[in-house]
Amino acid sequence: MNRATMIEDTAARWIVRQESGEWSAEDDAALTAWLDEQMAHKAAFWRLRHGWAAADRVGALGFQTAAPRSRARRGWQAVLRARPRAIGAIAAALAVTVGIGTTLVRSPTGFGLGHIAQEKASPSASAPVRIQTPVGVRQAIALRDGSRVELNTATVVRTAARDQGREVWLDKGEAYFDIVHRPDDPFVVHAGPRTVTVLGTRFTVRRDGDKVTVAVLSGRVRIEDASAGTGTRSAVIGQGDIAYAQSHGTLVALAAPARVEAMTGWRDGVLVFDNQRLGDAVADFNRYTNRPIRIADPSTADIRIGGTFQIDNSAGFLDLLQSAYGLKVRSDANGIVVEP
């Protein structure tokens, strides 16, 4: 074993002992003495302590690991028993879950579209309704129950027929929901394999294939994996939280209000990037245009960028790439190409 590994191993043992719950003043003195022996000891110990503390974030993961797990059941129980931060929410969700989910409670007033903005054909109040926005167009719709839905670019949403409960299917794209709270009649958004049950709130749901992102502006929502077998996996998130659901599990980012705000910038016609890969930023812009921007090579796509840009002014964005990052921008038949 080389020197660095040996020191790291010893440093890790100190951390284990320190966390064991049986730490004495003598131990503390012994640790200090070890640390003072060599700067290399401090480097290893501080590094591990810092990194290990950062790993506390696993507490916020309400996820099912992708790797096959022999004791999946037990793993899940472990999550249920976890600390309040991660788990109180889930326990509460389980309590609330009773009676909702796939069994729908009937709404006394019925549920469907009240009116549709932008001159869409007015649907018969009782039929299921499908609304689609073209690329680059945003549209707000009002639901019969007083809730409001704003559709972002290239989005397809369907609502349940009247008397079928408060349900919306997000087939594609992104939508913002401002939902009237009714304790006995939950509002459910289906996004592919994910079900978002609303507990009275404002939030956005974005769907890219199997990937579903939910950001909450106020209130709480529960996200369930509808494709899960018998054991339902769910996570409840609240104001300022974001859930990223993919086929193998759901990641929850707690208390990220700035990020939530950035993710809802489209409602004001802006895209907000905070240290994002250029490749991802461009993909975001491309959702709004039929003349996509392409990046010529992978290393350019990895450049990090930040800033707020008008959605309909990609020229300003491209100017910045040119002036601030020295990238070349040119047009061709298929769209715009960004080159190093």
């Binding site: 950062a54 790993a55 974030r57 696993v58 916020a60 993961l61 996820f63 690991t65 974001i242 990223y244 599990g249 990641l251 929850v252 980012a253 990220a256 990020r259 905070d274 240290n275």
Partner: peptide, 11 residues
């Protein structure tokens, strides 16, 4: 690193 990256690393 934003919180999202940190969470991804944790996972």
């Amino acid at each position: 690193l934003d919180a999202r990256d940190a969470l991804r690393r944790a996972q």
